[in-house]
């Protein structure tokens, strides 16, 4: 057995990474829950957001945390516009078309980023990149702690929006009863676009929280989205608590399997558990029973 301290620090690292996974999964599950489509452009959007953080820092000298509110707003607006004037009109109300349109968008975005930034892996250098906080015997990376806390704040804000505002109620109404929503005067296309924008904004926040300790290349988003898909299925498609708890769980599993099986096999644990969940409880931990 490994010493307890190492185990605990792996747990803590897993939880911190898991919170960011949760944030990525949150955007995915929200869009799935309301529009009933898998957004294949989710990964490319995350990559684009990470490059946006990179450009803001490297060229404009803006700290990632300071860039967060602005980038979240910009990505919300971009998500809104893309859904309202590209995905929506191009899909003609057919879900399989939406799937293809988002897939096409992801290919365009990835290749545009590849053309613009080359395939080099890049990172940013912030003064607090390696600073740590001492908790008991554990040394926790400060930017990762910020990412952990930041993810929870975003999840809480999202929950407040959905539970307490009329826009949030309209989002939940459209998710289950489109015609009923239209008949109380909800503009369904607008709500779709708002939801898509929220999904993109989640990614912008995730990118700002990730970049101080992470790197970016034109395909980086896919690594996250594969994990996020697992989390969404694990937690139950469309479930927000499911995404949050699933994200933390997957982060811990990945970190612990990395500890016991070796770093390169870290993700094996995730997929083992994923297969077990699919066999035992296909609707996910928080999914509605069929």
């Amino acid at each position: 057995m490994l010493p307890l301290d190492i185990f605990l620090s792996a747990m803590a690292n897993g939880l911190m990474m898991g919170a960011v996974y949760a944030l990525v999964a949150l955007g995915l599950t929200l869009v799935y829950g309301v529009l009933h489509i898998i957004n294949f452009a989710h990964g490319a959007t995350l990559t684009a957001a990470m490059y946006a953080v990179y450009v803001a820092h490297a060229m404009l000298g803006v700290d990632p945390y300071l860039a967060l509110p602005g980038l979240a707003a910009i990505f919300f607006a971009l998500g809104y516009l893309v859904q309202r004037w590209v995905i929506g009109p191009a899909s003609h109300g057919d879900d399989s078309n939406i799937l293809l349109v988002t897939l096409g968008l992801s290919i365009i975005m990835e290749n545009a980023l590849l053309a613009g930034f080359r395939s080099d892996t890049r990172s940013i250098d912030v003064p607090y990149g390696f600073s740590v906080v001492e908790v008991g015997n554990l040394f926790l990376s400060t930017p990762k702690l910020v990412a952990f806390a930041g993810s929870f704040v975003v999840a809480a804000l999202l929950w407040l929006l959905l539970a307490r505002t009329d826009t949030g109620r309209a989002i939940r109404a459209v998710a289950k009863e489109k015609t009923g929503a239209a008949l109380v005067g909800v503009r369904v296309e607008h709500i779709y676009a708002v939801t898509f924008g929220l999904g993109a904004a989640c990614l912008a926040v995730a990118a700002c929280l990730l970049m101080p300790t992470f790197l970016v290349n034109p395909r980086i988003g896919n690594a996250f989205v594969l994990v996020a898909f697992t989390i969404v299925v694990l937690g139950g498609m469309g479930s927000i608590p499911g995404a949050l708890i699933g994200g933390l769980f997957v982060g811990v599993v990945e970190s612990l399997s990395g500890l016991y099986l070796g770093e390169s096999l870290g993700q094996i644990g995730i997929f083992l558990i994923f297969i077990l969940v699919l066999l035992a409880r296909p609707t996910g931990l928080f999914g509605a029973r069929a």
Binding site: A175, K176, E177, G180, A181
Partner: peptide, 10 residues
């Protein structure tokens, strides 16, 4: 509407 179209999840 016919069929009520209420929001079952709310």
């Amino acid at each position: 509407p016919e069929g009520r179209r209420i929001f079952p999840n709310m």
